[in-house]
């Protein structure tokens, strides 16, 4: 059975991958090792996990003016998430890095996605203009 959640579209595109739910906000500058794609920051729910190819779901993004560069470097190293879903509007630097790297982004889910998020479940995100749909398989 597939669950669908409507969201606000931020960066257009479509992607699929396994869900990686993070209970904590991630700063792309500092929390992630570019070369391995792994979370090295002190984030208990995802520490040590790879962001490569996942549909990354987190409550919000932690701001930094340099976030775009580190997100883009993850992409250049083949370690970028396939898609990013944030509970709240990500900061502009993350949006810029995602557009530059072709990573679809959505936020403001119409319903609480947490009960539906199973680590590793197949998911897809489709963003067209300001509309987005997150599909979660079981």
């Amino acid at each position: 059975m597939t669950q669908r959640i409507a969201l606000r579209g931020i960066v257009e595109g479509s992607a699929r991958g396994p869900i990686l739910p993070s209970r904590e906000a991630i700063s792309f500058l500092g929390d992630v090792d570019i070369r391995s794609g792994r979370v090295v920051g002190d984030l208990p729910s995802v520490r040590g996990r790879s962001l490569a190819g996942v549909v990354l779901v987190m409550p919000y993004t932690r701001g930094s003016a340099g976030a775009w560069r580190f997100l883009h470097q993850l992409f250049r190293h083949g370690n970028a998430p396939a898609a990013i879903v944030s509970g709240t509007l990500p900061d502009p630097s993350v949006v810029q890095g995602a557009i530059l790297s072709g990573i679809p982004v959505a936020c403001d889910p119409a319903e609480d996605p947490w009960p539906l998020l199973r680590d590793g479940a197949a998911a897809s995100l489709v963003v067209v203009e300001d509309r987005a749909v997150l599909e979660i398989g079981t």
């Binding site: 003016a65 340099g66 976030a67 775009w68 560069r69 883009h72 502009p92 630097s93 810029q96 890095g97 557009i99 530059l100």
Partner: peptide, 13 residues
Amino acid sequence: SVLGARSNRDGFF
């Protein structure tokens, strides 16, 4: 703050 111009903290854009 010093010149009175108008700017955000931007990235690549």
